[in-house]
């Protein structure tokens, strides 16, 4: 009855891009995922950084201690667990050790984290944009409300060097790569950051870059300010020099990123309509790998999601990927796996 298409950048667009089938069942048809395995660590990291930033301001420029952070995360873990958010680790202790260890290696706050907290202007900055849609292209929807949360807006307090920089290989196709090439941030540079609780070599890095560039475009639209650069912070990346990826910004690339986002929304709407015609015809696997043959659209990163997915048993893509109909993941009567 509404002509507004509400789209969350992470909850809808990125989730749909990772796997339209899982998105259709879980988000569109309301099949509640019973284990949000991937989410626990990411939520704890986001909460930790937000909480550390708030404490730093509240304490007049003094950072919280590692013990205080652990206590806060213990509380948060309990709340998230009660909400069905699960961890890939064996125990609560392992999860907390890992999150705290990444932020406070050897018990001392990591310099990158310190720089982010001290330069923070805003945390959890909510972005919303309304766009008119061509009704015929979006099956009756005439407006889109796109929402996203920008993890951090910072102003550099000192000169800072990023070891890795995003380089475009083909701007027209929006293809690029993370290169070992320094970017030097000057004192006063305005940047927008997004935390990712993954490694730096994630196969989704291109989507994350385009997400953040779209956020930069929306931030500019909202504030009139164009950030100097975007930064992806891979919190779980063990190699310190690879944790941060600087993404240069120019007007043209912001426009292209926004256009890419609208195309993703259209793909999302097409999936809705396909689902409406026949739910089982929505294909699983990474949307960006649609041109590859069946079974090749799941990589090792997506496999972690697939192995815990409640809709994996009759997913043609996952079955083809495993190439073994007797695989334990697909066995309906296997009680040793959930």
């Amino acid at each position: 009855m509404s002509d507004i298409l509400e789209v969350s950048y992470t909850g809808d667009l990125l989730a749909h891009r990772r796997c339209p089938r899982a998105w259709s069942f879980e988000k569109y048809a309301g099949f509640h995922p019973y284990e949000q395995v991937q989410a626990m660590e990411g939520r704890l990291v986001h909460h930790a950084l937000e909480w550390l930033t708030a404490k730093y301001k509240e304490n007049g420029g003094t950072h919280a201690t590692v013990a205080e952070l652990r206590e806060q995360l213990t509380l948060r873990f309990r709340v998230l667990w009660a909400r069905g958010i699960r961890t890939t680790f064996e125990s609560k202790q392992d999860t907390l050790d890992r999150v705290v260890g990444n932020l406070f290696p050897d018990g001392t706050m990591h310099l990158t984290v310190q720089a982010a907290i001290e330069g923070a202007q805003h945390t959890e900055y909510e972005l919303r944009a309304v766009r008119k849609l061509v009704e015929a292209d979006f099956f009756g929807k005439t407006k889109m409300l796109l929402t996203g949360i920008l993890d951090l807006v910072i102003q550099q307090q000192d000169e800072f060097t990023y070891d890795r920089t995003w380089q475009w290989l083909d701007r027209s196709k929006l293809q690029g790569e993370s290169a070992v090439s320094p970017t030097i941030a000057k004192r006063g540079d305005f940047e927008i950051w997004d935390y990712k609780a993954t490694h730096a070599d994630t196969s989704h890095v291109e989507s994350y870059v385009l997400q953040l560039l779209t956020y930069a475009a929306l931030y500019q639209e909202r504030t009139g300010e164009i950030p100097v650069r975007c930064v992806l912070f891979f919190v779980n990346e063990p190699k310190r020099s690879d944790q941060l990826l600087a993404i240069p910004i120019d007007e043209e690339i912001l426009g292209l990123a926004e256009e890419w986002t609208i195309n993703q929304v259209q793909a999302l709407r097409n999936t809705m309509i396909t689902f409406e015609r026949d739910p089982m015809s929505v294909e699983g696997g990474d949307l960006s790998k649609r041109d590859q043959e069946e079974g090749k659209r799941v990589d090792n990163e997506l496999k972690k999601q697939c192995t815990a997915c409640g809709h994996r048993f009759d997913c043609a893509e996952y079955r083809a990927h495993l190439a073994n109909p007797d695989h334990a993941d697909l066995s309906l009567d296997n009680v040793k796996k959930n």
Partner: peptide, 15 residues
């Protein structure tokens, strides 16, 4: 011990 829980059982039935 099994790892299957009630929600996993429902996921199997739905297929």
């Amino acid at each position: 011990r099994a790892r299957l829980n009630l929600a996993g059982y429902i996921a199997r039935l739905i297929t």
